[in-house]
Structure formats: structure tokens, C-alpha cells
Amino acid sequence: LLPSFEIGAWTEDDVYCWVQQLVRKGDSSAEMSVYASLFKENNITGKRLLLLEEEDLKDMGIVSKGHIIHFKSAIEKLTHDYIN
């Protein structure tokens, strides 16, 4: 489970856990499981996660359009939940 809904306070480890949970919950393929490490390697914290754009995801090595859409949708939901 994630430490809190205060996404802005999430550490790199918290984001890593979130990506792992996202991959487990989704209908995503096994190749998506490597993405948790990509987020950690790129020092993505909660604040940075909320700022990620499609180009950032591509720069991190996420090239599948479907996977990018999956992440963007999940990040938008997080942003919405965080604001409300």
C-alpha cells in the first residue's frame, strides 16, 4: 500500500511502489513490469510524477503508445484525486 494520498510528498520509492501496483492491477503485459525501475532510475518523486508529459515518458524509455496512454491516464487520475 502507498504511504499516503499526499502525492506531492511521495519519494522515489513510493512512486516505484505505485508503478508496481499499477502494473499488477492492470491488463498490462509483463514488459510493463520493468517500468517501475525506469521511474526510480529517473528519480521520479511524487511531485515530478504529476508533471510528467508524454515526451518525458518516451525519454525514459517507454515507447509503446498503449503503455504511454495507460500511464497518462493513471497519472491524470492521481492528479484529480490529489487536487480533490
Results as ranks from 00 to 15, higher is better:
residue 1 L to T: 12
residue 1 L to I: 15
residue 1 L to C: 11
residue 1 L to F: 09
residue 1 L to P: 09
residue 2 L to W: 09
residue 2 L to V: 13
residue 2 L to Q: 07
residue 3 P to A: 10
residue 4 S to A: 09
residue 4 S to I: 05
residue 5 F to A: 15
residue 5 F to C: 14
residue 7 I to H: 09
residue 7 I to V: 14
residue 9 A to I: 04
residue 11 T to Y: 00
residue 11 T to C: 00
residue 13 D to W: 03
residue 13 D to S: 03
residue 16 Y to V: 08
residue 17 C to T: 11
residue 17 C to E: 12
residue 18 W to D: 04
residue 19 V to K: 13
residue 20 Q to S: 11
residue 21 Q to S: 13
residue 22 L to P: 03
residue 22 L to E: 15
residue 23 V to Y: 08
residue 23 V to F: 10
residue 26 G to R: 08
residue 26 G to T: 10
residue 26 G to I: 15
residue 27 D to R: 06
residue 27 D to L: 11
residue 27 D to H: 10
residue 27 D to V: 09
residue 29 S to K: 10
residue 31 E to P: 05
residue 33 S to F: 06
residue 33 S to N: 11
residue 35 Y to E: 00
residue 35 Y to M: 01
residue 36 A to Y: 01
residue 37 S to P: 12
residue 38 L to V: 06
residue 41 E to G: 04
residue 41 E to V: 07
residue 41 E to R: 11
residue 43 N to V: 01
residue 44 I to E: 02
residue 44 I to M: 02
residue 45 T to I: 03
residue 45 T to C: 07
residue 48 R to W: 09
residue 48 R to I: 06
residue 48 R to N: 06
residue 49 L to P: 01
residue 49 L to R: 03
residue 51 L to G: 12
residue 51 L to R: 10
residue 51 L to Y: 08
residue 52 L to F: 03
residue 52 L to P: 05
residue 52 L to W: 00
residue 53 E to N: 14
residue 53 E to F: 11
residue 54 E to H: 06
residue 55 E to N: 06
residue 56 D to F: 04
residue 57 L to G: 02
residue 57 L to S: 05
residue 57 L to C: 01
residue 58 K to P: 04
residue 59 D to L: 09
residue 59 D to T: 12
residue 60 M to E: 10
residue 62 I to Y: 04
residue 63 V to Q: 13
residue 63 V to C: 11
residue 64 S to N: 15
residue 65 K to L: 07
residue 68 I to G: 04
residue 68 I to F: 01
residue 69 I to P: 04
residue 70 H to N: 10
residue 71 F to M: 14
residue 72 K to W: 02
residue 73 S to M: 07
residue 73 S to C: 08
residue 74 A to W: 05
residue 75 I to H: 00
residue 76 E to T: 08
residue 76 E to I: 04
residue 76 E to F: 05
residue 77 K to V: 04
residue 80 H to E: 12
residue 80 H to W: 09
residue 80 H to P: 06
residue 81 D to H: 08
residue 81 D to Q: 11
residue 82 Y to G: 10
residue 83 I to K: 15
residue 84 N to Y: 11
residue 84 N to L: 08
